[in-house]
Amino acid sequence: MAPPLLSPPLLADALATPPRSFLCSRPTRQLPTVGLAGAVRGDRGRWSVRRRDPRVFATSTEADRERSEEDVADDYYSVLGVMPDATPEEIKKAYYSCMKECHPDLSGDHPDVTNFCMFINEVYSVLSDPAQRAVYDEIHGYTATAINPFFDDSAPKDHVFVDEFTCIGCKNCANICPGVFQIEEDFGRSRVYSQSGSTELIQDAIDSCPVDCIHWTSAAQLSLLENEMRRVERVNVGLMLAGMGASINVFRMASARWEKRQAKVLEKARTRMVKQETSDTRSSWSEVWASSPPRDDQSNGDGEASERAKRAAAAARRWREFSRRGADRPPTHKLPEAVGNKD
């Protein structure tokens, strides 16, 4: 009954081309990734009424399952449908376009719409604040001189993460430190529910874990790990142990993805130098070699940077929860089949 969703290229075109009234002096580029809001909401004009039919939402979810990995929003920039080197003006325009797609005034007062709108507001509040954006860029590898958080020994490892691919669901940590660890009923394995816990109890849980699946991490590492877990489809621990046992090293995957992002930054920087575009100040990467937040914030010292990193980690966690509830697109990374294990 609902018309089929636009294929990714058309959807990218629809999003890449601003609305008729949104004429840009800057030539429009084909965006390599599809903005999350555009993909989820689709073209408003395709429905005869503004109020969305919940069944359409379900259809959208099913159709999204067939998308390739590239369609999964990798970071806040792709949520808004912009490149990491976007200027503040471009980010604002993208934010306005996303709001037109998902604001309750235009899409109805459905709780999912409101929740998603709140999420977009949060993403925009991070990217529109230069200091907060600088911290985000550094954590996620969008700064040329940033250090991969997994190889940065200077950051304090004061956050805890459960490697769910190693966890066997023995409930040991949930018994030792119930305020921090919880067993997810859907999957039968442990997860961290709160970072506010007794350090001693957490250490006890780590020491007594039979498979060593609990790790201390820094706030930046936790952001990357949560982002990686958001992309992976998870199965019940019993099924995994029964034969779908190929494990994924989520630490290595997150680290590799970070390196990949920074490599793109370096490549772009090299291209720019070759073309002698040093006078171009439109891009926010005119300070591509910056390794710290803007100078005026540097005077606040490490405390401020640490607080921003923690807020970034908390936002990444909320995004993962948001994805998990289905309002986001479903993950496309699947655990390997049991038959693959025999090879």
Binding site: P104, D109, T114, P178, G179, Q182, S194
Partner: peptide, 25 residues
């Protein structure tokens, strides 16, 4: 740990959620 969450929707309705988040049980 007690969490107090405030939610304002697009119609400007304010709701407050509050409860114990730690310890769980």
């Amino acid at each position: 740990d007690i969490s107090v969450c405030m939610d304002i929707d697009a119609a400007n309705v304010l709701r407050v959620f509050a409860g114990v988040v730690k310890p769980q049980g």
